[in-house]
Amino acid sequence: MDGPGRAPTLREIAERAGVHVSTASRVLRQPEPVDGWSESALRVRAAADELGYQRNLWAASLRTRRTTTLGVVMPRLTDGVVATTYQGIEEAATRAGYSVLLSSPPDNLAAQRRAIELLVGRQVDGLLLSGLHTPGRAFVDSLPVGRVPMVAVTRHGEAGLPFVGADDVRGGRLAARHLLDRGYADIAIIAGPAHASTANDRLAGCTAELADAGIPLSPRRVRRSSFDVDGGIEAGHALLDAADRPRAVFAVSDTVALGVLGVARDLRLRVPEDLALIGYNDIPTVAQLPVPLTTIRSPARDIGAAAIRALLDMVDGREPDPRLLPVELVVRATT
């Protein structure tokens, strides 16, 4: 090297590693392979580190017309399940050699539109959209994204996009079947917000399972709520502080179920003797409660990783692999 500030050339790196220049170029522009680096690739990367090589991402983007950056729009990032899903997204993107630009706008369409427009302006190679409202097709069709590939994650919003999420209809069925097997026929559902496809799918699954068992669900046994403890408290009071309270409640999120548990405690109801309760997601705290919560476990981190794989398929011009990942019943003391 001629001076302390000059960047090394590919030829210098190749000579030090004992490989052809084309091999050095290929190694330095690709992400780490799933099965690890070969011996020659390790020599190239060691030589690049020793010589102080740094890849010029701007120049690379001009050659490939890619920025190796993905945009993620994910409201409610303070929610533990959403945050875990994002961990899976970022880990999978990093392994594939991509960086992530995250926007966590308020959970409404206008804020999400602004976030998407800003990310498209940053020339991201693809977009993961979480928190889509139902119905969301008109919203998606109106987005000024050009040819940027898009995948919906966690909520599909009936938007017509490739979707990766949990099999929430199956989860609703599992919850209802478990309560029926335990002998509970008078079941209420705290169904979450009406604009959330996850909530609607869980409600649909539970309702279908009850109908298959010959138990029609009365509208008065369905309460909408926000996806938080306060929503559970409000809906819990409406259901439980009444003479005809149900014998069992399915809450479509664990945080809602926590609110219901607080109401049951205040009303001096014993769980599960007076009230059976089942939640959804299996957040870490619910196994440690004084009465551990029965719940449906959703694979949040795996969903994030699978969504990245589907999006990168689209970025590379392949058909994406939309998937519904399996959920499982976790039986604890509340049932």
Score class of each variant (00 low, 15 high):
26 R>K: 12
113 R>L: 02
27 V>A: 11
319 E>Q: 15
21 V>H: 09
335 T>H: 03
74 M>F: 12
266 D>I: 00
211 A>F: 09
331 V>S: 10
276 A>M: 08
144 P>A: 13
285 T>E: 14
121 G>W: 00
38 S>I: 00
271 V>M: 04
170 R>E: 10
138 A>K: 12
245 R>H: 12
252 V>P: 01
236 G>H: 07
269 L>W: 05
4 P>H: 11
75 P>N: 08
333 A>P: 08
171 G>S: 11
73 V>R: 01
158 E>Q: 14
285 T>S: 14
208 A>M: 08
103 S>Q: 13
184 Y>R: 14
93 A>Y: 01
154 T>V: 13
154 T>L: 05
149 P>M: 00
245 R>S: 06
323 R>D: 09
180 L>F: 08
320 P>Y: 05
205 G>S: 10
326 P>D: 10
116 I>V: 15
192 G>E: 03
291 V>P: 03
275 L>F: 02
77 L>K: 03
226 S>L: 12
275 L>K: 01
320 P>Q: 07
71 G>C: 06
92 A>P: 00
240 L>T: 09
5 G>Y: 14
263 V>I: 11
191 A>H: 04
269 L>V: 07
157 G>N: 05
253 S>A: 15
110 A>C: 05
139 F>L: 06
258 L>W: 01
320 P>K: 04
228 D>F: 09
64 T>C: 14
261 L>F: 01
89 I>E: 01
249 V>S: 02
200 N>W: 00
335 T>K: 02
228 D>G: 12
293 L>H: 02
91 E>P: 00
167 D>S: 13
148 V>P: 07
314 M>L: 15
297 R>M: 11
24 A>R: 06
227 F>V: 08
6 R>K: 14
60 A>K: 07
205 G>V: 08
237 H>C: 06
201 D>F: 11
173 R>G: 07
206 C>N: 05
91 E>A: 13
195 H>K: 13
265 R>S: 09
55 R>H: 13
303 I>R: 01
65 R>K: 13
37 W>I: 08
266 D>Q: 13
52 G>K: 00
80 G>D: 11
271 V>A: 04
34 V>N: 12
279 G>I: 05
18 G>F: 06
331 V>Y: 06
16 R>D: 14
4 P>K: 10
270 R>M: 08
230 D>V: 12
313 D>W: 06
114 R>Q: 13
275 L>N: 01
308 I>W: 03
317 G>L: 11
132 L>N: 04
38 S>F: 01
230 D>R: 14
141 D>P: 07
210 L>K: 07
169 V>F: 13
125 D>Q: 10
237 H>D: 09
97 G>Y: 13
294 T>A: 12
14 A>W: 02
